[in-house]
């Protein structure tokens, strides 16, 4: 049994310890907002937070999650109470197909936590996710907007 927290709730799973956390989250726990795309850490579609660090869950064996606290897209906000990053995403109408967006949002949330006022250069250096629909332009705008919104709410 491997035990950890996901979005504040305790879980213990009996998956093979080498199973990528992505599949444990999606299939054993049923949180499908985290997506599979490249399976090899290239694209960021599967990004989540493990103890506040962004982790590409397709390449993170579940055994390393033991005792950790995990946050997925489902854990950062809800439709009624969206996270400021989600609000900015809605405001800028970022998603197209939407498949990569959970990963982008999780990366952006972390970026703004450690750097509430990122420059374009900071964004370039920290958001390395891929989006085949090409929403990058709006992602950048939405990160700046979220940073503004965050400041105003403080």
């Amino acid at each position: 049994m491997i035990e950890f927290k996901v979005n504040g709730k305790n879980y213990s799973v009996d998956d093979d310890p080498d199973t990528p956390l992505l599949w444990v989250l999606r299939d054993s726990i049923g949180l499908k907002g985290t997506k599979f795309s490249c399976g090899r850490s290239f694209c960021g579609a599967c990004s989540i937070h493990v103890d506040n660090e962004v982790v590409r869950s397709c390449s993170f064996p579940v055994k390393y999650a033991e005792g950790k606290s995990i946050t997925t897209i489902e854990g950062i906000g809800t439709e009624e109470k969206p996270h400021v990053v989600q609000k900015a995403w809605i405001e800028e109408q970022v998603p197209q197909c939407g498949y990569c967006q959970s990963g982008f949002i999780m990366s952006a949330v972390r970026l703004l936590d450690i750097n509430p006022n990122p420059t374009d250069e900071d964004i370039n250096n920290s958001i390395t996710n891929l989006c085949r629909c090409g929403t990058y332009y709006r992602v950048r705008k939405a990160i700046h907007l979220a940073s503004e919104m965050k400041k105003q709410s403080e």
Partner: peptide, 19 residues
């Protein structure tokens, strides 16, 4: 118009084939 699919696509609830 605000796109009707956007809210579900920012909170992970949009259902794709894989889901």
């Amino acid at each position: 118009l605000p796109r009707v699919d956007v809210p579900a696509k920012v909170n992970g609830s949009a259902i794709f084939g894989i889901d």
